[in-house]
Amino acid sequence: MLNSVKAWLNRHRYTHPGEGELPHPKPLRDQPLDQTRLVVLDLETTGLNPARDQVIAIGAVVIHGNAIDLRDQFDLILRRPELDISETVLIHGIGPEALTEGHETEDALVHLLEWLDGDPILAYHSAFDKKFLEKTVRQQLGYAMGHSWLDVAELLPLFFPKAETGGRGLDHWSEYFGLQASTRHHAAADAMVTAELTLIVINKALKEGVTTLAQLDEKLRHWRKLNNMKQY
């Protein structure tokens, strides 16, 4: 994969496509849950404030045909805070000498958008990742189109309302299902665990007759409404 990133970087270094050439996000319509390509993503950031903090690493895996396809994954470190080279971007596996200053983040983000191909994105507490990612692509590339996002942290209690997880965090749910992250707080590893939880959700959803993304979205809205009502 990294080879192709490199090749791609060389090809596109000075000729960024405009926003119009980048793939358009796909809305949640009647794509079948078990046939469509879904991206499960996790970001590592320097902090929790989207206005001030930066994205350090992007990890993402793809669910396609009801399975996590390891041939199709994204694992990129944008900046290592411990190295503290403010504008330098170290792309995982590509030596600094191969990169020209200033364009690396852009290159990586363009590649990410192309790789995403406008497909729906799932994340754990997706609001967080959504804000950071949208801010970053807007600032760096001027890309302002919003992807469709689904929050795995909402999907899990929706389909497993009785689960006694002892908390709402990613760790609580992975422990509940006996999953193990290969390393903690690593974007790609967290994306993997989130994707495994997503597989569990899809399995349950299909059994409950939820077969398309639109149905899933609808069910989620309904659940949110109910949840809000409960609070009053």
Partner: peptide, 10 residues
């Protein structure tokens, strides 16, 4: 590892 696919069965 690079060519594998991970599936879930309840």
């Amino acid at each position: 590892a690079e060519h594998a696919v991970l599936r879930f069965y309840a």
